[in-house]
Write a protein that binds this DNA or RNA. Structure first.
Length: 271
DNA sequence: ATGGGCACCTGGCTGC
DNA sequence: TGCAGCCAGGTGCCCA
């Protein structure tokens, strides 16, 4: 499910409800996630204040008094702020109960999400320490992309989906960004010119920013912290549009498989 | 170091 | 209706 825009939309929805609030308790309903929820967690979290809600790549970071909660939504996870008495649903995994009457509830049918706690600086955590710069960081841009692409022969689409090299771009926005940059997804990374790298870096930023403005993309089950869908789906140019006319030139959009994921592209607009 | 492929899951849809 | 098969927004890890 969620790529950077969906996680950022979730972060923005959660922040006003969580920031400055104290954690009254932590209830585990189903500890089976990508890594099982630690049994010690409720004892570690109770009484701590949430000082900030941040995002790094597709991870959400809840900064607490004595540590950081590292949350990931995986493919199908969602976080919602609810009244504490709201009946639970299938696949609810935990409640971070806030002081007052509200609770942060995590639901994740496929269980690819995670909920980890660290008392060390989170940027040094093994899941975060090798992540590439954020796309909106000044360190990311055409020159950066050209440097990492220069010697690699992987397909450019797989390169921009590699979190160690480019952050926050998942399967939807990889196809979309390549369309806007007019670059074919199968091209070897090292075959891109400086101008193409610059165009691709711009396209990645543009697509992510536009999607955040629309509240992200809801394909099937993504909802934000309030339970509302995102509206960027209407602005997708190629993703899940195989056989439909290109919005720019009317050529039918094509689909093929790359790294076990679907890729969409326009054979006329992309070179 | 790089690249390729698998694994981890459930649910929804399609077609027989 | 039932069931098999396929697909889905991520990413860590193992192997060559």
């Amino acid at each position: 499910m969620p790529e950077l825009p969906e996680v950022e939309t979730t972060r923005r929805g959660l922040a006003p409800h969580l920031t400055g609030r104290r954690i009254a308790g932590f209830a585990v309903h189903d500890r089976r996630l990508r890594w099982p929820i630690a049994r010690a967690l409720p004892g570690q979290l109770a009484g701590q204040r949430i000082n900030a809600v941040e995002r790094r790549a597709k991870y959400l970071l809840l900064r607490l008094d004595h540590g950081t909660l590292i949350l990931h939504l995986g493919m199908s996870g969602s976080l919602r702020v609810l009244d504490a008495g709201t009946p639970r649903l299938k696949h609810d995994h935990y409640d971070l109960v806030l002081e007052g009457k509200r609770t942060l509830r995590f639901n994740d049918p496929r269980r690819f999400g995670c909920c980890l706690y660290t008392t060390a600086p989170p940027e040094r955590h093994r899941l975060l320490r090798r992540l590439a710069p954020e796309p909106f960081d000044p360190a990311f841009g055409g020159a950066y992309l050209q440097r990492i692409a220069r010697r690699r022969k992987v397909a450019i689409k797989l390169l921009i989906m590699n979190g160690q090299l480019v952050t926050g771009v998942g399967n939807i926005y990889a196809s979309e960004a390549l369309f806007h940059a007019q670059v074919r997804p199968r091209r070897a990374a090292r075959s891109l010119s400086g101008a193409e790298c610059a165009a691709l870096a711009r396209a990645i930023r543009k697509v992510l920013r536009a999607s955040i403005r629309s509240g992200g993309t809801t394909l099937r089950d993504y909802t934000n912290a309030e339970g509302s869908p995102g509206y960027f789906r209407q602005r997708l140019y190629v993703y899940e549009r195989a056989g439909q006319p290109c919005r720019r030139c009317h050529t039918p959009i094509r689909q093929f498989t790359q790294g076990q994921r679907s890729t969409y592209w326009c054979p006329t607009c992309q070179h």
